[in-house]
Amino acid sequence: MPTTYEIQPYHSPPAPTLDWAEVAPYIGKLTEPRASMDEVTESDIRHWCEVMQDASLLYRDTEYARASPYGGMIAPPAMVQTWSMMGMGASMDQYRRGILENPDDPHHKVNAALEKAGYTGVVATAQEQTYLKPIRPGDTIHYVMGVVHMTKNDSYTRQGVGRYYVLYYRFTNQKQEEVANMTFRVLWYKPPMSTRRLYKG
């Protein structure tokens, strides 16, 4: 029997799509403020710069940074997201065992609804960061995050049929000053063969 490559006959009923009522209560809701696992350290900044091959003296030379308009050493602004990352144990639990550290977070509810509706593929499509204040060694970064927007209709992409959503992050320091914010646009799609399931477990 020849394969149909998942192409449906013309008069087939429309494919089921996401039930908007399942995600609506969680859109625009942010998590509780959380502190990063560690304070900002010169050693973590050095590791990041080595991997990025960023030679800026602002991030590694105390004397140079003191004479600069910043008046002291700062962290690379683009590094801000690393201080919202979970520990390796929690990552392993989430991605290999399916156990969430904070299962009641609104964005996890949105993700679960998307997965249930068959949108099991995930691909990041855009990231935008705004830097408001310098981050310095010794600072403690706190963050809130959540889904603030989702497309109401399916988009037809080369990856498959999917929905875009926008994850919003806001980063503050220990003085409650906003240091940066970030939007992260993600496509959740129905892959012909779910790569996510292949890697799960």
Partner: peptide, 8 residues
């Protein structure tokens, strides 16, 4: 290269 830190 670095001080001993809790993060490392």
């Amino acid at each position: 290269p670095d001080k001993v830190s809790t993060s490392d």
